[in-house]
């Protein structure tokens, strides 16, 4: 565990808490893509199956359970409790266009052709693109509330910090995982345009509004 990895994890937890609090406090999930949230739930479900087979550390297990529980809670709040506030007309990204290619790629490019390993690989590929429905929703409505922007910034920072963690681990431990690195780079690049808008607008107190 190095500082980049830990900061990345904290940023990830922070993002999820911001989102849950926003939905809970405003009793509304307006502006949030339920499809991205479903994809994240699928990501955690397929990645953390090793909760039952491999013990790494208490920290690891607790975080895995936390991610599973909070993503389940988010999906529940959006599709059950505050269903009436869900923006489904704008949330029209077709997730099969992400699920199918990720599944096929995981079957072809993986470390080992076993059920657990293919599912892990699938979850890594899917996570890298899971935010697309959310970014698509923001582009369709042309704007995002500040709190939604903070959520996206924290969520994007998490993988960017993991990239630093992988550079560090490569140098210090000679440890690297090409699949995770490749997907992590893709994931971070997808946020770049958003990062730019966040820094130039939201941090200066303006609302995130896309140019018309």
């Amino acid at each position: 565990m190095n500082i980049f990895r830990f900061a990345g994890d904290l940023s990830h937890v922070f993002a999820i808490i911001i989102l849950l609090l926003k939905i809970w406090k405003t009793r509304s999930c307006a502006g949030i893509s339920g499809k991205s949230q479903i994809l994240f739930a699928v990501v955690y479900l397929t990645r953390y199956l090793d909760l039952f087979t491999t013990y790494v550390s208490l920290y690891n297990s607790v975080m895995k359970v936390l991610f599973l529980a909070t993503s389940g809670a988010t999906v529940y709040l959006m599709y059950v409790k505050f269903k009436a506030t869900y923006d489904h007309n704008h949330d029209s990204f077709r997730i099969e266009f992400l699920l199918v290619p990720c599944a096929l790629l995981a079957l072809v490019i993986n470390h080992e052709f076993t059920v657990m390993e293919v599912l892990w690989t699938f979850s890594i590929y899917l996570e890298s693109v899971a935010i697309l429905p959310q970014l698509f929703l923001v582009s369709r409505t042309g704007e995002a509330e500040s709190i939604t922007s903070h959520y996206l910034f924290a969520l994007g920072s998490y993988r960017a910090l993991y990239l630093l963690n992988w550079v560090y681990r490569y140098m210090v431990e000679s440890h690297y995982d090409l699949i995770a690195i490749f997907a992590g780079v893709v994931q971070t690049v997808l946020y770049c345009d958003f990062f730019y808008l966040y820094i130039t607008k939201v941090l200066k107190g303006k609302k995130l509004q896309l140019p018309a």
Partner: peptide
């Protein structure tokens, strides 16, 4: 025996 790459990250 190959047990796959080490997965200690989240």
């Amino acid at each position: 025996i190959y047990i796959g790459p080490k997965k200690d990250e989240l």
